[in-house]
Design a protein around this nucleic acid. Structure first.
Length: 236
DNA sequence: AAATCCCACAACCGCCGCACT
DNA sequence: CAGTGCGGCGGTTGTGGGATT
């Protein structure tokens, strides 16, 4: 007798979760816990398989999940952990409170791997251009001519010296780095509320709201809340 | 304005290890 | 010990939305 595939049963719903389903799942777990994922959907009245419920809860609905983009420090941790552990996403997630293995996996494949792959080889035209860009960097302190390393730049700009120092300087001297150095050049920086960059004042305010964010809601709910909070913060 | 491309991320799938019988 | 069920994990895919042509 073979094992039944998880969602083989007819009538079970697949695809994106609705806010109603989210609410049903969260209400049920809050009242009854989740000791048996297999039985949970039936008990809760959901037309989903247990695996789908578990995934939705673990990756999205848990109250302790941190929302927003990854900070530089988190990215640094992921890169270092990946060097040590390889693709052991769940182990990494255990070391990054509020982050899920799925989230870490996604950010690795969509951001960090590309960044590392962009690492220029010493002596190439690209790296030479970046070095020139670094050396011509103009700061209020007029120390640009003295700057030759990422840590020196970062010590002035309060960006992330450690990540660049420990991983690779040129990897991080890309567009995102410069947009942080010159936030005024990026008009979206101060209005992009989905940005998790803690350098921006609204992110600090969102952190302060953290306890109030531990509630039920789908994607639309969160974005609505973010934009409402943004409006408040942007008000004089 | 429409078509196409690209990216980010939520969700699914199949496999594995462990506990239980 | 073998069979079974379940939770958990990592790889992969589907899709929506923004960017580009």
């Amino acid at each position: 007798m073979g094992r039944n595939p998880c969602c083989e049963k007819m009538g079970l719903k697949k695809g994106p979760w609705t806010s109603e389903e989210d609410l049903t799942l969260v209400n049920y777990i809050n009242e009854n816990g989740h000791d048996n994922w297999r039985a949970l959907p039936k008990r809760a009245g959901l037309l989903r398989c247990g695996k789908s419920c578990r995934l939705r809860w673990m990756n999205y609905l848990r109250p302790d999940i941190k929302r927003g983009n990854f900070t530089r420090e988190e990215e640094e941790t992921i890169i270092k952990l990946h060097q040590e552990l390889g693709n052991r996403w769940s182990v990494m997630a255990a070391k990054l409170p509020g982050r899920t293995d799925n989230e870490i996996k996604n950010v690795w494949h969509t951001h960090l791997k590309k960044k590392l792959n962009k690492k220029p080889q010493p002596g190439t035209e690209r790296s030479e251009n970046r070095i020139r860009k670094t050396e011509s960097f103009d700061l209020d302190t007029d120390r640009s001519s003295e700057l030759h390393s990422s840590s020196e730049i970062s010590s002035v700009t309060n960006t992330t010296a450690t990540i660049a120092d420990e991983v690779c300087l040129n990897t991080y001297l890309d567009e995102s780095f410069w947009s942080e150095v010159f936030p005024g050049d990026d008009s979206s920086a101060t209005s992009d509320f989905s940005s998790g960059n803690s350098d921006y004042p609204f992110q600090v305010s969102m952190d302060a709201l953290g306890s109030d964010l531990n509630m039920v809601g789908g994607t639309d709910f969160w974005y609505d809340l973010f934009y409402k909070a943004e409006e408040l913060i942007m008000l004089p």
